[in-house]
């Protein structure tokens, strides 16, 4: 039993690169508490995106343990991990990653397609988050009819529609201009204040300051932690 929301122990992830093992994550230990907004920064290839996918139960580590809410993620079956993602996590992907043939409303409703909620309840919940991100008047548009900033807002709406306790964001501002990026960061901060734990991967140091804590990684290792961070 642990007091932390996410606890990472002796994490190691090796990739095979032309017959040679390359460590994407090299012996990481840290934890994240409920209600934090953590930014993970580092240069390209530093292992930050791998860390996010391992924490999201999508990428089995070579060694080590990831516990979320006292649940050992990789002791679960793949289907149990899928259920865990549906219940605990909201993903915001790099480059929005909306389903091109679904409208904004349908994209946001997709995570609820596998829940037992009633049709009207699903629609109401989806419209509530779409309204929240300021796109209610564009709910029936297809993704290619939206601007980059709007698509990012849809991605955020999709991530929070099931009211997950944890939001994992991979480069949420990577494809946006600086003004729109700041708007998105403000939205993430707001969600964090409402109780969502936010873990954001970014290579942009400017965005780091919006988080309550930050960790910098290099070559798969934790390089620096800000003062609030603690290693175990």
């Amino acid at each position: 039993m642990t007091d932390h929301l996410i606890e990472i122990n002796s994490l190691n992830k090796m990739y095979d690169s032309g017959g040679t093992g390359v460590a994407a994550i090299d012996h990481m230990d840290f934890y994240i508490d409920d209600g934090e907004f953590v930014s993970v920064t580092g240069p390209s290839g530093s292992g930050k995106s791998t860390l996010l996918s391992v924490m999201g139960g999508m990428n089995r580590p070579t060694r080590g343990q990831v516990q979320v809410d006292s649940l050992d993620l990789y002791a679960l079956t793949p289907e149990q991990r899928a259920d865990f993602r549906s219940e605990y996590l909201g993903f915001i992907f790099q480059s929005f990653q909306l389903i091109p043939y679904l409208t904004l409303l349908e994209n946001v409703t997709v995570p609820m397609a596998i829940t037992g909620r009633k049709k009207k309840e699903k629609r109401d919940m989806a419209m509530a988050v779409i309204d929240r991100v300021g796109l209610a008047d564009k709910a029936l548009r297809l993704p290619d009819q939206l601007s980059g900033g709007e698509q990012e807002r849809v991605a955020i709406a999709r991530a929070i529609v099931n009211r997950p306790p944890i939001i994992l964001a991979d480069e949420p501002t990577g494809n946006l201009d600086s003004r729109t990026a700041l708007e998105i960061m403000a939205l993430l901060q707001e969600l964090n204040r409402e109780g969502h734990t936010v873990i954001m991967v970014t290579h942009n140091r400017e965005m780091e300051r919006h988080a309550t804590r930050s960790v910098r990684v290099r070559d798969g290792r934790i390089e620096t932690l800000d003062t609030d961070w603690c290693t175990k």
């Binding site: 793949p78 899928a82 865990f84 549906s86 993903f91 997709v110």
Partner: peptide, 16 residues
């Protein structure tokens, strides 16, 4: 692949 990856990431099971 991209679409299936998104479905799986947001919690869709293999059977879904």
């Amino acid at each position: 692949t991209r679409e299936i990856g998104i479905f799986r990431a947001i919690g869709f099971r293999q059977t879904h």
